[in-house]
Amino acid sequence: MGAEAEPRRLRADAERSTARILAAAEEVLAVDATATLERIADAAGLARATVHRRFSSRKALLEALTGLLNERYLCGLEQARVATAPPVAALYRLTELLFELKADSRAIMELTVDPATKRTPLSPEVTAGLELLFRRLREAGEITATDTAWCCAIYLAVVHEAAQLTANSPMLGDEAGEVGARADLTFRTVLAALGGNRAHG
């Protein structure tokens, strides 16, 4: 094995171990939010020393899970094509994807919430993607609000509130509990709140 191959192999092994730890953490913490790093190590099938080497504390693990969620948000922005699709279509698709993500990652989102903002901290890349979408909505005449940071705050607040609705809430209409019903409610509410004056089906 060459001199360069060994460090690459070690990095690959470390990345695989980290991925196993994070996957195990998602599963374990979804069942028991107070689970220790030791329990997560057991679930990952790794030595406890390995987990402690990757994550020195529970706080470090939660920070890594926050980073993982931000990667998923970025994936959602890419799938919604916020930079190229018609902005209204991109907003609706992104909203659907966010509710799907919330359903799949609810426990981790609750653990990584910032008490001040009531949501998981967003990376600069995710924030930039959201602001781009609302800037495009403004340029297309779909909204009148000009402050993109304000638009993002309103959007995320409505997503959060819609996600908290019970499955039988009258706000969700006939498709109570469905991702589509929550996405539709959020989409219409956000456009109206930000000065949209067009009818969207």
Rank of each mutant, 00 (worst) to 15 (best):
T112H: 02
L46G: 00
E100Y: 05
N197L: 12
P87A: 08
V179M: 11
A193I: 06
S56G: 05
P7H: 01
A163K: 02
F55T: 02
D114R: 04
E4D: 15
S56I: 01
Q164T: 04
S169V: 09
L133G: 06
I154T: 08
T66E: 10
A80L: 03
A44Q: 06
A90P: 11
A83C: 10
F187D: 08
A107D: 03
E96N: 13
L74I: 11
A19P: 09
R138H: 15
A43Y: 04
T84L: 09
G129D: 14
E27C: 14
T66Q: 14
L62K: 00
L130D: 10
L65E: 03
A85M: 02
E4T: 10
T117S: 09
A157G: 12
L122Y: 04
G177E: 06
G195F: 15
A3Q: 09
E110Q: 06
N197K: 10
G141W: 05
C75F: 12
R16C: 09
L101E: 07
L185A: 11
L122P: 03
E175H: 05
C75W: 08
R119P: 13
N70V: 05
L46T: 02
L130I: 04
L111T: 02
R72S: 14
E15K: 03
S105H: 08
E175M: 12
A163V: 06
A12V: 11
S105D: 10
S57K: 01
D147C: 06
E15F: 01
E178H: 07
H200T: 06
V51G: 01
V179E: 10
A19V: 02
R54S: 12
A43E: 05
T148Y: 13
L156Y: 03
L74N: 13
T84C: 13
A157M: 08
R138E: 12
E26A: 01
R9E: 10
A192R: 12
A25C: 12
L194C: 07
A49K: 00
V126F: 12
A103F: 13
A192Q: 04
V159F: 15
E6Y: 12
A25V: 00
R20D: 12
R53V: 00
I143M: 03
L111E: 03
L194W: 06
R135Y: 14
A49D: 10
R39V: 01
L122H: 07
I154L: 11
A83M: 01
R198P: 11
T146V: 13
N168H: 08
G201M: 05
P86R: 02
G67I: 01
V159P: 02
G67H: 02
K118N: 12
I40D: 05
A153W: 04
F99G: 05
R72T: 11
T146Q: 15
E26R: 02
Y155D: 09
D114W: 05
G2H: 09
L133V: 06
D13C: 10
L91A: 14
S56L: 01
L77T: 05
